[in-house]
């Protein structure tokens, strides 16, 4: 029923996952003394950057981005500017939420902000790519009857997996094991990353197995 889309989705996800892999391996080769724990911020930024660039490119090439109503350059430009603004606002939003969850307010603000950049590039960016800078649509997508296409369902799954992963990542922090990955925000960002990768795998699989039941109202 949705075979074509599922194939496209699977290959997109494979590309994104491999970009995450490359973003981990390349700095390890290029930067001496690189490790995911040791130089965590570097890893965070390289992964976020890679995911951002690759997702934007892939989704643009695939043409999933919602059709624009006007084709003037100014309108397109304003969309890009708004997208960037939303990206930044979403970073701030995630930062606030993470601080409210109990992250230190001042001490490691940079680390917290980097985590929120990662979360934004894993979740909000995809919303931007699939739905455009339209907050109403984002809220609508996350309801039971809100998904309008296979890509919306996929969005639901990956975003939920990422956030749940980050949430679970906070669990080992209070334990007294003294492991390097318990340092803030390593476990949370690793959790988010693992959740995201799981989502990348799970979304096409879930959609494939439920392709008979999936019906979308308007498309």
């Amino acid at each position: 029923m949705w075979d074509h889309e599922i194939k496209a989705m699977a290959s997109t996800h494979a590309i994104i996952a491999s970009s995450v892999f490359m973003a981990t391996v390349l700095p390890a080769v290029l930067v001496p003394g690189f490790s995911v724990y040791g130089a965590h911020l570097l890893w965070l930024y390289s992964v976020s950057g890679a995911v951002t660039v690759v997702s934007v490119a892939v989704f643009w090439l695939l043409g999933i981005t919602p059709p624009t109503k006007k084709h003037t350059l100014g309108y397109k430009l304003s969309r890009v500017v708004r997208s960037c603004l939303y990206f930044f606002l979403s970073c701030l939003f995630f930062h606030t939420v993470v601080v409210l969850y109990g992250a230190p307010l001042i001490e490691s603000a940079l680390e917290t902000f980097s985590l929120s950049v990662l979360l934004t590039s894993l979740t909000t960016l995809r919303c931007l790519c699939v739905l455009g800078p339209n907050v109403q649509a984002w809220i609508r997508v996350f309801s039971r009857h809100g998904a309008m296409s296979v890509w919306d369902t996929c969005l639901q799954i990956t975003v939920a997996c990422t956030l749940v992963g980050a949430w679970l990542g906070a669990f080992p922090i209070p334990l007294d094991w003294d492991r390097p990955w318990q340092v803030w925000p390593v476990s949370c960002s690793l959790g988010a990353m693992i959740g995201y990768l799981t989502g990348l795998v799970a979304a096409p699989a879930w959609i494939h197995y439920h392709r008979k039941q999936l019906t979308y109202k308007c498309k």
């Binding site: 809220i139 996350f142 309801s143 039971r144 009857h145 809100g146």
Partner: peptide, 9 residues
């Protein structure tokens, strides 16, 4: 989140 999922938010 749950309310939104049910379309009631």
């Amino acid at each position: 989140v749950r309310l939104n999922w049910d379309g009631l938010l």
